[in-house]
Amino acid sequence: MRKIKRIATYTFLSVASIVSIFPFLWMLVSMTNKSVDVTQGRLLPGTYLLENLQALFDTVDMGTALLNSTIIAVITTFLTLLIGSLAGYGFEIYRTPGKDRIFNLLLLSMMIPFAAIMIPLYRLFGGLPFFGIDTLAAAILPTIITAFFIFFFRQNTKMFAKELVEAGRIDGLSELGIFFRIYLPTMKTSYAAAAIIAFMNSWNNYLWPLVILQSPEKQTIPLLISNLGAGYSPDYGLIMSAIVIATLPTAIVFFVMQKHFVAGMMGSVKG
């Protein structure tokens, strides 16, 4: 009985693992094969990798999409962390009157479904001069301030030794100086976890860029993949190469910093 249970457990977990991993193997293998071979169900690595990559960068503008996605994700990550940590620190360190009421109010924004604010946001940016529709700035701006990161940094600041703030004051540092010179360096791990979530969210964001970015030169990687996928006669080798490139940054972060990654994911929210 025990043995049967053991075998069942291993079988079940193995099947689940295969199902989970298979799409990854398939995209890696298909990236090296001709489109025809992919259609015929070839599951062995081929020799067509360079041709697929060549086609990806020549026939569709993968270079531009990569550049746009990188610019958006890097700026978004930087600003998200800066604004979120300033606020989280501010909420935890200072005894601002009424701060908890404001904090709870801000947290409420996490319940707001994006679809509900998408149209007013689109109309808001439609009237702006430099951050208007079809600019990378418009793609970045509404995504950099989220209650989640304020919450995240406030929680993490609870572990920060508050005596250091006093020590900084005695040393004559300004309040901002304390934040940048003392808080920031001691909280590196929190920043790392936050950076992973912020970067991933931005790198994979689809709906808002789809709404706000319209011209092909502004396309991000998810938009490019979505367009390729919607085509009637898809070039599977090429599309799989694009998907692998899109997945690569998050996969690398996952394997290199698994602990931070999982911690970060547990802090972020599905959707």
Binding site: I21, P23, T247
Partner: peptide, 12 residues
């Protein structure tokens, strides 16, 4: 292995 699908972007 079971966690791995989380690294993919939704579109991909």
């Amino acid at each position: 292995a079971i966690f791995l699908p989380c690294v993919t972007s939704l579109v991909a």
